[in-house]
Structure formats: structure tokens, C-alpha cells
Design a protein around this nucleic acid. Sequence first.
DNA 1: CGGAACTTTGAGTCACTTCAATCGGTGTGG
DNA 2: CCACACCGATTGAAGTGACTCAAAGTTCCG
Lengths: 250, 250
Amino acid sequence: MTSRLTRKLETFGPLPEDDRRFLDDLVGSPRLLRANEDIIREGDTTNDVHVVLEGFAGRYKVTEDGRRHIMALLVPGDMCDIHTFILKRMDHGIATLSPCQIADLPRSRVLEMLERPAVARALWCMTLVDEATLREWLVNLGQRKTEERVAHLFCELHLRLRAVGLANDEHFLLPLTQTDLADAMGASAIHMNRVIQSLRAKNLVAFEKGQLVILDIDELREMSGFNPNYLHLDEAKGSGPKADPARPRT
Amino acid sequence: MTSRLTRKLETFGPLPEDDRRFLDDLVGSPRLLRANEDIIREGDTTNDVHVVLEGFAGRYKVTEDGRRHIMALLVPGDMCDIHTFILKRMDHGIATLSPCQIADLPRSRVLEMLERPAVARALWCMTLVDEATLREWLVNLGQRKTEERVAHLFCELHLRLRAVGLANDEHFLLPLTQTDLADAMGASAIHMNRVIQSLRAKNLVAFEKGQLVILDIDELREMSGFNPNYLHLDEAKGSGPKADPARPRT
DNA sequence: CGGAACTTTGAGTCACTTCAATCGGTGTGG
DNA sequence: CCACACCGATTGAAGTGACTCAAAGTTCCG
């Protein structure tokens, strides 16, 4: 069966049947983690690359005074740490936010992935989209007030999850606490609670029991100035098996 | 003479003499741009990759309601847009913030770079450090108040510029307006002005006439919780061709 | 059933914003 | 060579988004 990883990498363009099989086999026997467990810690060096197959995880840092900031949300299909493939040590931690299934890919398997041009290209794309997402989060944090930020995040998750088949038009599972959201949006948990109530009161979304219901996607996009450019979801079309995908070597 | 680009890429480890010559020749005849000119715009597709050789530039996005957010500062040696090498179009713009010298590398030249393993590795590193910097900026914006953010930024620039030989222990050129800084730190220009005055009043830095004077680096780091991990400036040692056996790894 | 984790509410305070206006330097055209 | 315009820096004052502290209500799970 098509794994989440395969599905995710396919969003950047079609893959040869052989590559698809290879990827599907890659994620053999995942580990099951509970919520709020570290997948990898800041300072770690590791040879394994981790992939989220089920559940939500997040990149985070903890400041001097003990506040946690979540810098990225990882959903099924997302890779955690290709970084360690090149850089020595993790400069941030990654933890589960809900129960998760995690695949551990040893270094050798990742090298095999990079041998396959179409897969290597997809990995490059993935890295660049992760970076683009980081930039959009930066704008979100820097220029918008909390209610707009949350609306923006919901728009983003809606598209990302739909791309891997985990959302339909009006709802998806979002097994995060309000505190998790607050830590990602640079707000206090109390303020996050009021903001979510406000969004609910305006009939834009409902968020309870780990499920998000989108009630008015147009208004959510409008109020948050959401522009899906940065997700490069249309990359699949047009750029096909072009010139050498420029795979850097180590 | 060693170009800024060569210098920058060398921060990730020594390069073969042949690669160094290649890189030095690469930046042949740079363009001279004035302050506040676009190097590349959101939505652009281009085959050229741009490198900042002199001056300061910034990645930016403009929100619906016309506010500019600067998501990254580019200093001499930095590459603007390897993104367009893989992804179709720019999801953000890049503009000069001071007069700049910019080199335009055609696609073919970039491919040549990627042919050279040591250079390709350095480019990978560079991309990952850019990404790590984005994450740190996210934490900066999300968890710290403006005065701490600015202190953090100054600490970062101090290290980044010193790495390419553009800063000494106590000062460096910083040809940005207070408005530029405000747009990067998610603050109003007015508040930025007061924050800078406050930093000055505390005898931490002086910032005038495009020059930044560091008066108390220890306190700047202390107050902003600055941890230089994310810049991976020690990457040169240990993982390069010539591992340094004296350096303990964990 | 009981405890822990999460959500909700209220009140006071602070960081930061917006608006309005002034001041200084710099470049340009008359 | 001055007048004017412009940009950036600065100051004051009023308003607000968001935080902290404190406490109670609710849901989940062993």
C-alpha cells in the first residue's frame, strides 16, 4: 500500500513505479510513540533519519527561561531531520504532539534514496518547501495578530493535509492542545483559548476533541491574507523529469 | 583575490585549491545596485542565481495590507535564490537594503558548482544553516520582546560578519535604517527607535551612521539568550576532509 | 472514582501600536 | 546659494492586543 512518505513525495511530481515500491518498502516497521515524547533532541547526533507516518509532531526549541516555541508542525509523510545527514548535530528538538508512528531510516537507506534522481529531486523540493513554510510562519508571527495567525495556520494545515489525503473540504483531525497551538503561534495558552472562542463565535471554525471543522474557508483566507504560493503544491505539473535535479553529493 | 563567496563557503570546511580558484572566477563582473532595488521579485522565474558580494540585502514579503516583513538578511557572500534552481517560481522577493554588488550566476555555472563535491557539500550546508537561521528568527519573534530580539539579531550579525571578515570584536558596518530593522523584527519603526535608544542608554551598543558598535557583547548575549549553535560555525572542524582529532565529538 | 491534563473565566498590567508632529540632514532645482 | 522637498530619526500621548496571576470548570483515562 502507498505509504504516507510516498504520497508526500509524490506531491512534487510523479515518481517511477520502481521508486514508489522502493519508498513503500522503506518504512518497514515503524515505532509507536505516545504524545509528548522526543523523537530527537537538540544537540543529538544521529545516523538515522526519521519520518512521521501517523500523528502530529513538532520542531521546537526551549528558551533560557523555559518557554517552548514550536517552529514547525510535522504531519504524516514529513521528514524530521535530513539535517543530520550533513550537519553534525541537531540545533533543535523534535517531539510528538500526539501519538505517532515513526519510521527510522538508517543512513545507508537515505543514500539509496539519493541515488534515485526522481526521489532526490523530490527530497530537494521538500526541503525547499519546508524552508518556504518557515518564512511564511515568520511573516505570520511578525505581521499578524493572533487571531489572523491561527486562521492562517488552519488554512495551511488544511492544504497540507489534503495533499496527503488526510483532510477533506470541511474537516480534518488536529490532535493538538490549545497550549501546543499557543506555543507555535507565539501566544499564551489563555489568549489562544480566547482566540479560538472568537473564531468559533464568528462561525469560521470549530475545534474540539482533536478535530477541526472548517466552517468558512473563504473568510479564513481573507482575514489572514493566506496565499498558498509558498507550499508549491502545483510543482507537480510542468517541471516534470527535467534537467538533472542537481543532487549534491557529500 | 579571495571572493566573499569563496570566503563564505569556506566557513563550512576547507576547499581544494582548484575549487577556490573556480569560485573566485565565478563572480566575474558584478552589477552595482542602489539601496532598495529589487534583486528578484515574488513570482519571478529565473535561471540566474544571485550572490551578494557587497552590501546588505533582505528577503521580504508584503502582506495584503501593505506591510513589509523582512524574513532574512543577506550579507556579503550569501546566495539569494538557489530555490529557483529546483522550484519554479520565487515565493518571496529579495531587495537591496544598502548599495550592493550582486553577481549573477547562470544556471550552467551553478551546475558546474554542483559537479564539485566539496562545493556541493558547502552549498548543502549553507542551505541548512539558512534554514536553521529562519528557525531561530522564528523563536526570536515568537518568544522575546523587541529589545531582546534586537540584541539577538546584533549578536547573530556580529558572528556572521566576522566569519566573512567584515567585523572585528567591537564593531561592523550595518547600513540599515531603523525602519528596516523594525520590518525584520516585527515591530513598528517608532518602537524600534525607542528600543535602540534603550540599548544605547544601557551602554550595550551604539548604532549610528550605518555603523554598529558593540559595547557589551556578554550582556547582549545574556539578555537575548543567544546561543550560536544554529549558525553551525564550527562545522569546518571535524566533519571536513581534515578532521581535527583534538576536538572531542559526542 | 479520582487525579491529571486541558479548557475556561475574570481582573489588572504591560508591551507595543497608531496618530500627530517636530527636527535634522541631504540632495535637487531654481 | 538658498528654498524646498524628502527621508530618517525622534518625541508625546492615547489606545489596544496580549500577558500574567489566580481560580474554577471539564474532560479524559487508568
